[in-house]
Amino acid sequence: MRWNSPLKYVFLLPTVIWVLCFTMFPLLYSLRLSFFRVNIGQKDIFIGLENFARAFKDPNVWNAAKVTLTFVLVGVSIQLVLGLLFALLFNRALPGRNVLRTIMTLPLFATPIGVGYMFITIFHEEGGFIRASLGAKIPWLSNPNWAMVSVILVDVWNWTPFVFIVLLAALQSIPEEYYEAARLESSSQWELFRYITFPILQPSIILVLILRMSEAFKVFDIPFSLTSGGPGIATETFSMLTFNTYRRFFDFGYGSALAYLLLIAVAIIVTSFFGRIRQAYT
């Protein structure tokens, strides 16, 4: 039929060219910058891998890596566990379930920097909600450890609903007959969960894990607005460190090298789950 007309290139090529110009070219450019010492107004000097070597010796880089990893591992684990629990909790006869589910999705598109500022009003040590209403005097934003806790808490508030609605959708796709059949064999709730619910949920859990991890590694907006990376550099994530290298020191070469290290980290995560991604999207 007409499904082989050369018109297909007219449909596809504009986007391919767009991506080559606006994504592939900048990527290449950034890689190039990472091998150079860049001073504005002067000729760039090729220094090979010196920027990368410097990164491995820089204590700020190790700090940012530690902060980002803590944020990703702790934050995403809490989101997965809470999201799964909430999905199980809501997957039953509940009055007004659709309204409740809709309310839970509200944080998903909320402007991240707005969310950060909104939570300043919660965590503020004098008039914040936790101080004013619960009476707890906790140095949320001024103590390094509590600052990390508050950044993770905000991310949990923001993204647990995502895990929740995806897993709820997966739960609702399980036919009731499976459970009826299984109840003939066993009546233990745990066994039903272990041998029916969990195996069916597993692909969705892995998908959510990939999407959340790859996003969490890039986190910028929330620590930027909530703590500005502080106190000190206690909550400075990798993206923020890179951004500050550009903005405060105009060190484009070193900044690009840092950005590439982050890119490599995300690429490792994504490619290690590549089989699942391919299966989900093709």
Binding site: P26, L27, Y29, L33, S239, Y246, G255, V270, Y281, T282
Partner: peptide, 24 residues
């Protein structure tokens, strides 16, 4: 499928990588 995955892979890209090239 490979072309689609190529497009999708850009979604996983940390945007910070392209900030300086875009600026320039």
């Amino acid at each position: 499928e490979d072309i689609t995955l190529w497009f999708l892979s850009q979604r996983f890209l940390p945007p910070i990588v392209t900030v300086v090239p875009f600026l320039l």
